[in-house]
Amino acid sequence: MRADVPHGLRRVGRYSLLALVSAVVLFPIWAVLMQAFKSGPDALNHPESLLPTNLTLDTVRAAWTEGELGRALFNSVVVAVVVTICVMLVSLLSAFAFSFLQFPGKGVVFVAFVATMLVPAEVTVVVNRRTVESWGWLNSYQGLIIPSLASTFGMLLLRQMFLQLPKELREAASLDGVGNMRFLWEVAAPLSRPTLGALGLFTFLGTWNAYLWPSQIIKDRDHRTIQIALEGLSGAQINRFNLVTGGLVIASLPIFAMLVVFQRQLVRGLTAGAVKG
């Protein structure tokens, strides 16, 4: 029966549905954007608060200076970039070992690796804070970065990709006397570029949005990340209920921009890695 519905009508129907769902998904974002570009009192005046009238940059500007968001953005970028690069490197190495190399106990080690994914941060955070403190890493970049590298998600993602590479590739390379590292850098890694991209993006997002760990080890303003700085803004008073929305916009803008640019690569990367479970 469905096939009888004229093609054009179905298309209109689909577009309407897409538009409707988009409106629902975007509404909260729109509402917050409008809050951020209004003065405190105007933001409380509903429903006019939803209309793009009486716009002002004052709230965003106040959030920027009061939250010292410039410094916080810089810190977040530094930490997220370094963590992303390191996670990609470490994951490439371990994924390679699990996909191309044979060694006794491989299965057991692999299961142990995967099992660590299930350990919640709530369990580890207290002890890790102690470790970081005893190494003098409180309020430091290394304290933010190094514990964040302990993750096996990237290894799993890349291993899926590597397992799909034709076995002959590796065998041929072996016959030519190409070593593991050279094969990894010159063949396996370049072939996995989309997956690496997706891993990079997810790691970047995860690090950028991390809250629990930075809040435990960062006290001074020189090392605050953007999420910690945001929390300072949410302690604002009744007269500036919307100050935090100015901060939300600043904190989310770079990520939204990145998402718009890399969205297709993200999907492609995951597609390449997940053809088969």
Partner: peptide, 29 residues
Amino acid sequence: RTVFSSTVATSVAVASLVWVVLLQPEIGV
């Protein structure tokens, strides 16, 4: 697609603050 994937860019803190702005009984949107 960009719209539907957009909330991946929000952290828990960002998303929750968004909903405070929407749902607060006296002054929520």
